[in-house]
Each structure stands twice: as structure tokens, then as C-alpha cells.
């Protein structure tokens, strides 16, 4: 249906507009879990609470995810210049950093679990694992999309003249990153300060 953005009423590409419409609604999704988490901050049922967090570790994994946004935007930039070789490189780098972040999360979950933060033991544990787990699933989907993007540029299905496709995946990726900016602050740092004075 859509030929070019110039033929639409608002002069915007359908797909990009749709992505933004969808991202706007995602705030309501993550917001709900963040609210539940904040409500249950000290509802630990005798189990471990926010003191369990390893802030230096999470700072590093947050930093990796933040930098993946840089490589993502560079991938898009390369695509707009038609430089597919560099674009693929940056896409892989982004997916790789996403994988490092996910690996860190799996590691973190394992450590917490061993230290006694069991999913079904307290509302705090449920809320923490569910919120960060859903974020992890978003990252995972993002990695799948990036790998798909990578392979489809190889087969020629995605062409140098279609930077919009990289841009769409990029928007999703940056959004997931932005949600982590919120989570890192609101879920890890602020409670750590507020409760452990």
C-alpha cells in the first residue's frame, strides 16, 4: 500500500509512525511492572531485599547496553550512506552488546537465586524478576531482529536504499535502552540509596 512517505497524509512513513505509536503504549506496560516493584520494595517476606544488588556489576552491564545504542545509531547512519559493509558491522556489534547485557542478566539472576531471592518467595522477588525479565525478553527480541536484519542485508532482501528498516529496529532498540535507563535508576540505584541509608 505504501509507496513513499511523500504520498501519505502527514508525509510520514506508515511503518515509522506505527513504531512510534506502539512505543508510546509500551510505557504503560513497563510502568505497571515498575509500579508493582516500587509498591513491594520492602515486602520481602523475610527474604533478601534491595541490598542484594551488585551495583558495580549492573553499572557495567547498563553501560554496555547504553553503548549498544551508539553502535545502533551508527549502523543506521551507515545504512543511510549506503555503506552496507559498515552497517552490518555495527549491527553485529549492537547485537553482540545486547547479548553481553543478556548474559549479565542471566548471571545476575543466578547469583541472586543462589543468595536466596527465589521467584515465588516474596512479592519483591516476583516483581523484580518479572520486571527485569520482561525487559530481558525485549532485549532478546531486539537481538533476533538485529540478526534478521543482518542476514536479510546479505541476501539482498533489505537493500541499501531502505535505511527505514534499520531505523525501525533502531527505534525499538533505543526504546529498550531507554527503559533500562529508567530501570537502572528507579529499580536499582534509588532504592539502594533510599532503603540502605
Amino acid at each position: 500500500m505504501t509507496a513513499g512517505a511523500h504520498e501519505t497524509t502527514l508525509g510520514l512513513d506508515h511503518r515509522k509512525l506505527a513504531m512510534w505509536v506502539f512505543l508510546g503504549s509500551e510505557f504503560l506496560f513497563f510502568g505497571g511492572f515498575i509500579a508493582a516493584y516500587l509498591l513491594y520494595l520492602d515486602t520481602t517476606a523475610g527474604g533478601p531485599g534491595v541490598e542484594i544488588f551488585d551495583i558495580p556489576f549492573t553499572t557495567i552491564s547498563s553501560f554496555v547496553l547504553l553503548m549498544s545504542s551508539l553502535t545502533m545509531v551508527l549502523a543506521h547512519h551507515a545504512h543511510t550512506k549506503g555503506d552496507m559493509r559498515r552497517m552490518r558491522l555495527w549491527v553485529l556489534a549492537t547485537a553482540g552488546q545486547g547479548a553481553v547485557f543478556l548474559g549479565g542478566q542471566v548471571f545476575e539472576f543466578n547469583v541472586f537465586w543462589r543468595e536466596g531471592l527465589i521467584y515465588g518467595d516474596s512479592p519483591f522477588a516476583s516483581a523484580f524478576y518479572t520486571l527485569t525479565g520482561f525487559h530481558g525478553i525485549h532485549v532478546f527480541i531486539g537481538i533476533l531482529m538485529l540478526l534478521g536484519l543482518y542476514s536479510l542485508t546479505l541476501t539482498g532482501k533489505i537493500k541499501p536504499g531502505q535505511p527505514i528498516k534499520t531505523e525501525m529496529i533502531g527505534l525499538y532498540w533505543h526504546f529498550v535502552d531507554i527503559i533500562w535507563v529508567l530501570i537502572f535508576g528507579v529499580v536499582y540505584l534509588i532504592p539502594e540509596l533510599a532503603l540502605l541509608e
Binding site: 510520514l12 515509522k16 512510534w20 508510546g24 510505557f27 545504542s69 551508539l70 533502531g170 533505543h174 535502552d177
Partner: peptide, 24 residues
């Protein structure tokens, strides 16, 4: 910063910003 630069909101139409910050 992430929204304005990496997501290009600074350079794009205001409609996108409205969705982003409206949802937030």
C-alpha cells in the same frame, strides 16, 4: 539525550515526540 539524539526526536516531526512523551 537518548530520545533526542539516538531516536532522532530532535530532528523529526513533533508527532513522534508527542507519542513518546505522551505515553510516558
Amino acid at each position: 539525550y537518548v530520545a533526542s539524539w539516538f531516536m532522532h526526536l530532535k530532528f523529526d516531526t513533533k508527532i513522534f515526540s508527542r507519542f513518546m512523551y505522551g505515553g510516558l
